[in-house]
Design a protein around this nucleic acid. Structure first.
Length: 424
RNA sequence: GUGGCCGUAGCUCACCUGGUAGAGCACCGGAUUGUGACUCCGGAGGUAGCGGGUUCAAGACCCGUCGGCCACCCCA
């Protein structure tokens, strides 16, 4: 019989690792809450049209990376490849857009890509979106919030903030035309990928890694020269606010986004500790997306961070707190009546001390082998029930981590004893 | 979608230039009475990813396929 394996690029997160994930999630949720963001929980499946209309028809995501399928009605559905579209849809549908909204979400996203370090087909993001603020201080707020997050996670020294403005749609189109014209004149010097992108997504050529293409780009027209006045002024303001907050950044003129809905401020947090997939968080403004999706014109801005990548970074930097044992107390028994005594006493103990993590040994075996498991579990105490304990209505408490005589306690004193021990 | 490297016990790996598989860790049991850790003894566990080919003989060589990792691409 062939064994069934997980789908390629979709991995299990085992208890060992999930501890680090929880640390990340707790920390992020705390920082988001401190800025007044509320959590929104969104479906994982949406109508395919939502993503086609928001992300852009000619993007790689829509053209070749979406998990799309027809449901039983023949309606085309898609496993969300990103979070913003669904969030905007929800904001419109639930009439959230009359006032300023600060929202965040967390969960799995799906993209059919070739897996590699920091890239899965099912991956996980935490994202934040703000609706209803035109002015650039919200751009700065979001960036400051992420900067605070890196400090909270202890990775601030190893991530770099890159910012850019890609202007409004008119200025971007003008720039795109100029860029295409220039690059077409140097067509032969471009690498194959870039030649292809000349037709599909010319802005993407800017961050090509190909040396020949980079050489051509040194004399290419600059996006900054095509920016409209408002975008320019807003970008200046964003930088002022970042400077005032002493958040270091570099302006990366070739920073563009892969999704069509972005405009004006875009930013990315990058690390050099993760190999080729170094972007750990990225976002930007999307002032016409709400309207594009059928809502009344509402400015928007947001970012998403990749949880896998952040977990890898925490790992690489050993920034997450050390793993702690999952068990405080491991109870062993000699079977029969002792097992019954243990069951009832442990239920009582769990009621008395709800925070205490208690594992009851299962599967029988000698005291010797049971205590081996108690030790392996990392528990601080072993509780022992045998015939003597049952006869005397006591339990033997054995300390596994420090030198101390084991004691036989009347059952009534067990909770108090462990509570005092936990406090010390 | 393209490329490189790799697939031997649960894990990490060895078996050098082909002669029918091994270590460490983990696991299980034991070292006289109901007691973990350190130590010692013993045990279980692999049709060498799968399929084909070359050969007297293949885990080692060749081809295909599947899977993994990394990179391109793309992106968080």
């Amino acid at each position: 019989m062939t064994t069934i394996r997980a789908i390629r690029g979709m991995s299990d997160i085992l208890p060992d690792e999930s501890e680090r994930w929880q640390y990340l999630e707790r920390t992020v949720a705390g920082v988001l809450a401190s800025y007044g963001y509320g959590e929104i929980r969104l479906p994982i499946v949406e109508q395919t049209a939502l993503f086609r209309r928001s992300i852009g028809e000619v993007t790689d995501i829509v053209e070749k990376e979406m998990y799309s399928f027809d449901d039983r009605n023949g309606e085309s559905l898609t496993l969300r490849p990103e979070g913003t579209a669904g969030c905007v849809r929800a904001a419109i549908q639930n009439s959230l857009l009359g006032t300023v909204q600060r929202l965040w979400y967390s969960g799995p996203m799906f993209r059919y890509e070739r897996p590699q370090k920091g890239r899965q087909r099912q991956f996980h993001q935490i994202g934040a979106e703000v609706f209803g603020v035109v002015t650039p201080e919200i751009d700065a707020e979001l960036i400051l919030m992420t900067a605070r997050l890196w400090r909270a996670l202890g990775v601030a020294e190893h991530v770099e903030l890159q910012v850019n403005s890609i202007g409004n749609s008119a200025s971007r189109q003008a720039f795109r035309a100029a860029l295409v014209e220039y690059l077409s004149a140097h067509h032969a010097a471009l690498d194959e990928d870039s030649q292809r992108r000349l037709l599909s997504n010319p802005l993407r050529i800017l961050d090509s890694k190909h040396p020949g293409t980079q050489a051509v780009l040194t004399h290419a027209p600059l996006l900054a020269d095509y920016l409209d006045d408002e975008s320019k002024a807003d970008f200046v303001r964003v930088r002022e606010l970042l400077d005032a907050a002493a958040v270091p950044y570099v302006v990366n003129p070739s920073l563009v986004r892969g999704l069509d809905y972005y405009n004006k401020t875009v930013f990315e947090w990058v690390t050099d500790r993760l190999g080729a997939q170094g972007t750990v968080c990225a976002g930007g403004r999307y002032d016409s997306l709400v309207e594009q999706l059928g809502g009344k014109p509402t400015p928007g801005i947001g970012f998403a961070m990749g949880k896998e990548r952040l977990v890898l970074l925490l790992e690489a930097l050993e920034a997450a707190p050390a793993a702690v044992p999952a068990v405080d107390v491991y109870a062993v028994n000699s079977g029969g009546g002792a097992e019954i005594a243990a069951f009832t006493a442990l239920e009582t103990l769990r009621s008395a001390l709800p925070g205490l993590r208690i594992v009851q040994h299962t599967g029988g075996g000698s005291f010797r082998s049971q205590l081996k498991k108690a030790d392996k579990s990392g528990a601080r105490w072993a509780l022992i029930w045998g015939d003597d304990e049952v006869a005397n209505a006591t339990v033997t408490v054995k300390s596994l981590r420090e030198q101390a005589e084991q004691v036989a306690l009347p059952l009534a004193e067990l909770a108090g004893f462990l509570q005092r021990g936990t406090a010390s």
